[in-house]
Design a protein around this nucleic acid. Structure first.
Length: 215
DNA sequence: CTGTGGATTTGCT
DNA sequence: GCAAATCCACAGG
């Protein structure tokens, strides 16, 4: 029996968890924990919304994926071993974080779109430029919001191994499982707009977008 | 609730 | 050059 208030045991995922297609990995990632150990303390959140982006080996290839045109300087980590962070800059001011999938040589990734904040909420609020009593659902609901809150940047975290016990940024599993998952098209695209590759914990307040997108 | 526009770096054509 | 896997502020119903 677990004593009241005792933290749940959370363990690293095996690399093989990520050595599969993004559309397989994405829904299974819901409920896992992203943890960043920083100088200002440990920040952690439960993954509640993701999107899959497929590698160019797929038929048909995914025109919305950064890996669509093959490896470049930016997308190199997507073609490397699974379970690594792919962090890229967008619109000049923001970052988005993905986790690489597939065996080395093939690309594919899962974009993290929303977390439920678990620890370090005050630091997250400060990182977001919000008051320290801001509602939890405002801290990490959105791909760039969660990067800001968790202190993730391309310079700092791109290429980090998320299944290495010594990494400051890791993905952990505490056994939590979503009751129901909603599947919808991906958000913000102008191509492949009907591919059902967005997955969210049904009804979760921390998922991004309007209520209908949260299930 | 919906819609619009601006901020501003990066990578690829 | 230009478009981008975004966010925020603000206007209007």
């Amino acid at each position: 029996m677990k004593a009241p208030g005792q933290a749940l045991q959370a363990q690293l995922l095996a690399r093989s968890f990520f050595e599969a297609s993004p559309e397989t990995v994405a829904p299974r990632l819901l409920g896992r924990i992203l943890e960043h150990r920083t100088a200002s303390g440990t920040l952690a959140g439960r993954i509640v919304e993701v999107e899959a982006y497929l590698g160019p080996h797929n038929q048909p290839p995914d025109p919305a994926a950064h890996a669509f045109r093959g490896p470049t300087d930016r997308t190199r980590v997507l073609f490397g071993p699974a379970g690594h962070a792919y962090v890229y800059a967008i619109y000049g001011r923001y970052f988005c974080m993905n986790i690489s999938c597939e065996l080395a040589g093939r690309a594919g990734c899962v974009l993290l779109r929303a977390l439920e904040p678990l620890t370090g909420l005050e630091v997250m609020a400060r990182n977001r430029g919000l008051l320290s009593d801001a509602p939890a659902r405002n801290l990490t609901s959105g791909p760039s919001r969660l990067c800001l809150a968790m202190g993730l940047t391309r310079a700092g975290q791109n290429g980090v191994d998320l299944v290495d016990a010594d990494s400051a940024l890791r993905v952990l599993d505490d056994g939590w499982l979503p009751e129901r998952i909603v599947t919808t098209p991906r958000i913000g695209l102008k191509v492949a707009m009907d591919w059902p590759l967005r997955f969210a914990v049904a009804g979760h307040a921390c998922a991004s977008g309007p209520k209908r997108m949260r299930g």
